[in-house]
Amino acid sequence: MRSWWWKILCVVLVGFTVIGGLLMPVPRLEILNETIRNLYFHVPMWFTMIVLFATAFWYSIKYLRTGNLQYDVYAVQFTNTGIFFSIIGMLTGMEWAQYTWGEAWSNDPKELGTAMSMLIYFAYSILRSGLKDDEKKAKISSVYNVFAFAMLIPLIFVLPRMVDSLHPGNGGNPAFKQYDLDKNMRMVFYPAVIGWILCGVWIASLKTRLGLLIYKRDNTLQFDLEKKIR
């Protein structure tokens, strides 16, 4: 977590995404016009969220198997960062939809699936804050995290593809990749995905390191704010 090479790579890739994303050529399509460049920003937010939630899932299972509370710190901080990226993904998606699909919210299956997943993860945070005892907090929230991630798969990946949808790649629409994601866009899109995932992991790793420091100092998972409220 302390190595710097992948952090430099992150800065380079996201920097390339910003500069190349605006300057490199893109297909000229009706309705989308220049907003097709949002592909380099909106979509990687969700990919990053998936990676972060998957990591949190992994650490939740590790905690359940070993009982080491440090793994719970990993799980909660990666989940919190994933929630942050999902909020940004949702906001950018709604902004994009307002001007291309005509309305910010169209009850599209993928929009609904991700909103449901986000609510499930918000409930994870509320669940954690409602439990006082460290062991109980870690155990119950780890189990919940496993179920939350398991729900994400059908809600976001399976169901939207089975019904009519506005999103590319779902409900009978050809994916962006099939004909519109020409090689110019691929050149920016793939580095963008990798760069943003690294960015998400970097933020999550910082929060985890901070959480571990506080855990070692106070020997509790409760942060000072929670203690003051109680």
């Binding site: 996201v14 910003v18 500069i19 605006l22 300057l23």
Partner: peptide, 10 residues
Amino acid sequence: VVAVLATIFA
């Protein structure tokens, strides 16, 4: 536009 975004990200 590029400069503004690059500044924000920097």
